[in-house]
Simulated assay, not measured.
Amino acid sequence: MESVIYGRHYQTLLPISISIRNGFIKEIQRLQEPNKEKSLPIIAPGLVDLQINGSFGIDFNSDDVTVEKVITITQKLWETGVTTFFPTIITNSKEKISEYLHIILEACDRNLRVNSTIKGIHIEGPFISPLDGPRGAHASHYVRKPEWAFVEEWQEIAQGRIKLITISPEWGGSVEFIKKCVEQQLVVAIGHTAATTKQIDEAVKAGARLSTHLGNGSHTTLPRHPNYLWDQLAQEDLWASYIADGFHLPDSVIKVITKVKEKKAILVSDAVSLSGLEPGQYETHIGGKVHLTEEGKLHLADNPKILAGSAQMLIKGVQNLVSKGVLSLEEAWEAASIYPSNLVNLDVQKGIKEEAVADLVLFESNENGFIIRQTIKDGKLVFNSGIEVHEGWSQ
């Protein structure tokens, strides 16, 4: 069955129609109805979040996570324009990481649309720096040197779904570990690191491809040069992810990252379970008592200067970049959709092109920000706020 949607192309803002058949974009046509132009929502590629720890009160790293909760968070993410994401499992015991992987896998096996939305899993730790600062909020007693046997066991449990792993190459044996990951088609990211210039260079030569949330998970003070931030920026083969919630990085740093890395700079939410919840005081299993402000800043309850994670969804990061003039709408949106898909070699997000997978978002932009109106996954309408801009939908 064929369906048609109408909207304004996110790159040009000109009105178009998109015909969708069997989950793919079949035809794109320019509309010749100028009177409708301003009333139509913007059509853009579905968002791709490669680093999300949880949201809407659900944490992929909590003992109370269930198959039903993984399904729920996936459905809630559709409402924010995310059509593909990597649940992110952080530093923990080998057994706990295995347990969380089992739950995510079962959710994918139980629900076809969840399976289509979760295109990979991101393991962030435990092979990170043991030092205060670079380690961030990760539990120090679980941090350890890289061990390939751990990854083999996890990947067997996940049935090959682990696609991205964040490590610090400051550990002995890191080069060999990275090479094994690359042989198994795992994308290796450098993050939560205090690695030297030589260690970072060796890691990139071994096949490391990404810097995880560059500028965060680091010491509060660093030598002017050399330091591991400059070293990663200077590596031409290294992509960089960054958080644009307005609190983790100043605009000036984001401008430098995006200017240097260009289409290798990808936006991530790094959202925690409190994302999407109302402002107020909360108790968390990692940070303890925390406060979520009206502006969306999440900090320790007794110290507003110490962040307790990111509490904003990926769409908010796109909005922040555009509203502050850091990036254009096209640049910001592609940094949160097409670029991350390119990094991990996903076919799900190639943009608005004929024969591309129909993962699309329709949204409006006003003084309150970006408002998602519809989300389409594999050509199916998975979220609809009630507007009528389509014909012939089969949900």
Rank of each mutant, 00 (worst) to 15 (best):
Y6D: 02
G7H: 03
H9M: 04
L13P: 04
L14P: 00
P15H: 15
S17D: 03
S19T: 15
E27N: 09
I28F: 04
E33P: 07
N35T: 08
S39M: 07
I42A: 11
I43Y: 00
L47R: 04
N53K: 01
F60Y: 12
S62E: 00
S62R: 04
S62G: 10
D64E: 11
D64N: 13
D64R: 02
V65S: 04
V65N: 01
V65F: 08
T66D: 07
K69I: 10
K69C: 03
V70S: 09
L77M: 13
E79S: 15
T83A: 09
I90R: 00
T91F: 09
E95G: 04
K96M: 07
E99I: 00
Y100I: 09
Y100R: 15
D109R: 14
R110F: 10
S116Q: 15
T117E: 06
K119S: 15
G125S: 00
P126M: 01
G136D: 03
A137F: 00
S140P: 14
R144N: 03
R144F: 04
P146V: 09
E147F: 05
W148Q: 02
A149Y: 03
E152G: 08
E152I: 05
E153N: 04
I157H: 02
A158N: 07
Q159L: 15
K163V: 06
I167G: 04
E170K: 10
W171D: 00
G172N: 11
G172H: 03
E183I: 13
L186Q: 02
V187T: 11
T193I: 12
A194P: 00
A195M: 12
T196L: 12
T196G: 06
I200M: 10
E202N: 14
K205G: 14
K205W: 05
G207C: 01
T212G: 10
G215S: 05
G215P: 09
G217E: 02
H219T: 00
T221H: 13
T221S: 12
P223N: 13
R224P: 06
H225Q: 12
Y228R: 01
L233D: 03
D237I: 00
D237P: 01
D237L: 11
L238F: 06
W239A: 10
S241P: 07
G246L: 10
I254G: 03
T258Q: 05
K259S: 14
K259L: 12
V260M: 13
K261P: 07
E262F: 06
K264G: 04
S269E: 08
D270E: 05
A271H: 01
G276M: 04
P279L: 07
P279G: 08
P279Q: 07
I286N: 09
G288F: 12
G288I: 15
K289V: 08
V290I: 09
L292T: 03
E294G: 09
E294N: 14
D302I: 02
D302F: 08
P304I: 03
K305Q: 15
K305G: 13
I306Y: 04
G309L: 07
K324A: 11
V326S: 07
L327Q: 11
A335Q: 03
I338W: 10
Y339I: 05
S341R: 06
N345W: 00
L346G: 01
L346W: 09
L346A: 05
V348Q: 11
Q349T: 05
K350Y: 04
G351F: 01
G351N: 05
E354P: 03
A358G: 07
L362S: 05
F363N: 07
S365F: 14
R373H: 10
L381G: 08
E388Y: 08
V389N: 13
E391N: 12
G392A: 09
Q395P: 12
